[in-house]
Design a protein around this nucleic acid. Structure first.
Lengths: 143, 143
DNA sequence: ATAATTATGTTTATTGGTGAATATCAACAT
DNA sequence: ATGTTGATATTCACCAATAAACATAATTAT
């Protein structure tokens, strides 16, 4: 499963080298999509399909369901590894996540997250301060 | 299945090039119709027929059902691909969706959506702000 | 029937995605 | 320390897809 934090660079065409460790876990195909808190989610195909069918099955009559489907489904893109182990991130996703040259790839167990380095640092310094606060909330959720 | 977001242009005659990726999935025929939230829906023939029979089966006594059927059934139109992979959108649909030159084609798993770029951006900036809110609501639906 | 208008088809240019080669860097072993 | 290996960064070149402009065919109105 995915854990750890890595710093990698995008090239001028928007390609990102995925840490070699993770490639084996993504051999069967992967999907990137818009995530929460300004980052991208990268799922192994299997995980993705579970999520996607759930989303596609929501009633199209509900505005919130449509909005979320558009965020995640329309935001999604199949990614393939070229023989240097890179994936290409489409322009709209780079823009969404504010990706510049330096980015962070973080392992969140069943998914990867892709962040712009600056945004990641800012987010982290915010959450580290409140960490004990967050911990208490999680306690209420049974963690 | 359809995923991703693509930016394409209508020509002056109202023709729209469909992303090459998607053409294969629409080879068997397709149907455009009025969608929700100011966009057009584009279905592969098969999906369309499932939806159309569902709509036709709604109780004719209910005003909302009649309205929805008129929106989607009466708005529908068979589309054909020319040998450049373009489809022609009839005037009333272009008008309905407010389509100007630049438009967005979004994959929503079992259908495509066609948006005017400006309207799409507006819609997205609205939903992105509430995204974590929406996510929590959907969490309750088991997503 | 002819002109005007709309629809359809073709060609060319531009853009952007894709692949490959080289350079740089870091880790490890000798 | 130094060389070796594996991994990432960067650059260049090519090809395919799209955009735009143009040409032809079909339709409609006069």
């Amino acid at each position: 499963m995915f854990i750890g934090e890595y710093q990698h660079s995008l090239d001028s065409k928007g390609r990102l080298a995925v840490p070699a460790k993770f490639r084996v876990l993504l051999k069967g195909g992967a999907v990137v999509t818009r995530g929460l808190d300004n980052c991208l989610f990268l799922y192994p195909k299997k995980q993705w399909e579970i999520l996607a069918t759930k989303l596609a099955g929501l009633p199209i009559s509900q505005a919130k369901a449509r909005a979320f489907s558009r965020l995640m489904l329309a935001g999604a893109m199949d990614v393939e590894f070229d023989n240097q182990g890179r994936i290409t991130l489409p322009g709209y996703l780079r823009k969404f996540a504010g990706l510049k040259r330096k980015s962070i790839i973080a392992g969140l167990y069943d998914r990867l997250e892709i962040w712009d380095e600056a945004i990641w640092n800012k987010y982290k310094s915010g959450t580290e301060k409140q960490s004990s606060d967050i911990a208490e909330t999680l306690g209420e959720l049974g963690v």
